[in-house]
Design a protein around this nucleic acid. Structure first.
Lengths: 198, 198
DNA sequence: CTCGTTTTATGATTTTAATCATAAAATGAA
DNA sequence: TTCATTTTATGATTAAAATCATAAAACGAG
């Protein structure tokens, strides 16, 4: 998102997180700009009985957690490393100075926020008004365009677990399993030794 | 959002829309920047059997529909006048030139997108993992902060219909009616001749 | 390699909100 | 000011996904 050179010019630091480490927590005030060097990060909420909702999954070069930074509001969700991750951390003041002094970066930020808003619009409509199979398929098709799914001879490998798909679509894991089976039967996707291809 | 003077400098035009007029439609490519002068606009989706999901409601001074403009993507939803509305319309090229030549406007845009992303994050988690009463209350509390609800001696008047609340939370109107009654019984809000106060 | 954990899987049962039916009250356009 | 439409309301019924129970397969840390 923001080039390494520019980040270093403004005093960025690096930090590593192990699988399941918390990067920041819901309810806390934002202090930094975060940009992934390597690994995978999820932003998610937990309701009172521990049920998870995944707001989004982020990969290398992507930033996350900016909205509350711009609004001086508390984080609406937690950021957690899904696998070992290396992350650039830039203190808020430095980040704001960087933005001010480099107007072209603003455009990049706008495009990034616009992209995330677009995803949330699509998924909100799905979750509210469509049945499980439709939701799952929409998530998968969005993922092919914006998550880093790899294509091989069987098609795109959807490298999410059934549980993750459930947490992204507001469905329980059993419902996702049954929806995926039904979609396979309809020829919308393939299951090759438990892995999903589209 | 953007000052009238600046908009006029870049050749903005005004257009009026009657109640239920379509401003733009899902699937179309964005051609303009829209900013409300007066009236009320909703962005919403309809599923196959006509069920509506309202992405957001916008009032005077607010802009809407920018994300696809920045991404050169099709609109993910329709924009419809909820009541007679007067709207500034600035062609895309002019808007982009305005942005380029006025870096401070970018910051305003960023803050606006961040605010909308924040709302969507909160509501997505609600819709996915919480029961009707919780969802309705969260929408109302968000509305007090960000929609233009007016306070009087009974508290904040929630000037949404039960149907609108349903379309914003993914619930059917009967469920919303029952949830509001239950919330009144619990003392979370008041119903004074059919109007909801919080 | 081994063993505990996670993931996928399937069937039975339950719960919850949707749906269906109906109607009174309120609103608004002619 | 009348009449069609919208909004609020309530009860009965249904359908769909959640929940519960259980287990095999796969994975991964040690």
């Amino acid at each position: 998102m923001i080039t390494v050179e520019l980040l270093e010019k403004y005093g960025v630091s690096k930090k590593t997180f192990d699988r399941n480490d918390i990067i920041f927590e819901e309810g806390n005030l934002p202090l930094n700009y975060y940009q992934i060097i390597s690994g995978e990060v999820k932003m998610s909420n937990y309701n009172d009985d521990g049920r998870e909702f995944i707001q989004g999954i982020f990969y290398k070069t992507q930033s996350f957690g900016e909205p509350p930074l711009f609004l001086n509001q508390k984080y609406p969700a937690n950021a957690i490393a899904v696998e070992n991750a290396e992350i650039f951390i830039l203190p808020k003041e430095n980040f704001m100075k960087l933005l001010e002094q480099n107007p072209k970066v603003s455009i990049k930020i706008i495009e990034n926020l616009a992209q995330r808003l677009y995803y949330k619009s699509v998924m909100a409509a799905e979750i509210s008004t469509h049945e499980p199979e439709h939701r799952v398929l929409k998530l998968i098709d969005h993922g092919i365009a914006y998550f880093n799914f790899q294509k091989d001879k069987n098609g795109y490998l959807i490298n999410f677990t059934r549980q993750q798909i459930g947490d992204l679509t507001g469905l329980r894991v059993e419902t996702v399993i049954r929806a995926i089976k039904a979609l396979e039967k309809k020829g919308e996707l393939k299951i090759i030794n438990r892995k999903v291809y589209r």
